[in-house]
Amino acid sequence: MPIVELIQVTKAYESKVAVSQLSLAIEAGQMFGLLGPNGAGKTSSIRMMIGITIPDSGEVRLFDRPFDRHALARVGYLPEERGLYKKMKVIDQMVFFGQLRGLTAEEARSRGIRWAEKLMIAESLEKKTEELSKGMQQKIQFICSLIHDPGLVIMDEPFSGLDPVNATLLEDTLLELKAQGRAILFSTHRMDQVEKLCDSICLVNKGEAVLSGRMREIKGRYERNRILMQFEGREDFLKSAEIAEAKNYSGHVEIKLKPHGDAQKLLHEAAQMATIYRFEMVEPSLEEIFIETVGGRADA
């Protein structure tokens, strides 16, 4: 049963089509990455899932039912830019959003405190939001969107502004939520995080899905035509007819084979003139797939 589903959704603004015939579905316990260059339609898609805008055509389904505002009580949303009241105290902020989500003030307060301890910002609870750093504010935002224990978590660029330590803290939290069976969707530019965290992705460009499916399956679609190699000795084999492109970083080489290039043949050639420490055939990274798929077609 998909927790959130877009079916052939189209949304056009005055001058441009933001989302066109987009379909995607996220299951419970799934971490889903919505990728795409700037202006591709990621935020427009998210806004239709949370009822800020309504699609021109197509259907949005939440918790296996047609879209209904009441279902939003079970959705947690973290916007891309800061969505906090600057003058409000952190704990008051958490209580306010908790109450809007239907919690009692006491319940919201105790949950807020628990989350703050978990994310190591308990000492900031009594401070005004504007006094805190960007990373701290992002954590508070994170808590505000999770305080009501939502079944669906939607996060627009959740890791922006975070240092590596805090980014890892949030990643771990998202993985915990996933293990608890929640559906998580996040949009990002950071391919390494998507690769590490997501089970499924949808790559959008100019409002259309250009690539979607399970991560493994997508990667499987691409040839293993890249080789990482470490050697000592002559490097004449790098001029082999099998190689399309090679970058040699003094002994560490990244090789891209020609279509239907034979890796075994290359290994054989290399072994005759150099000592080989490492010869690994790797699948393309998501970043490479992204660049290859979107290529020069992106707006930004």
Binding site: I50, I52, P79, R82, G83, C144
Partner: peptide, 13 residues
Amino acid sequence: TSRIYEVVLSIAK
């Protein structure tokens, strides 16, 4: 300007 409305609009009318 601070985009709080996105959060609030996803909850309230």
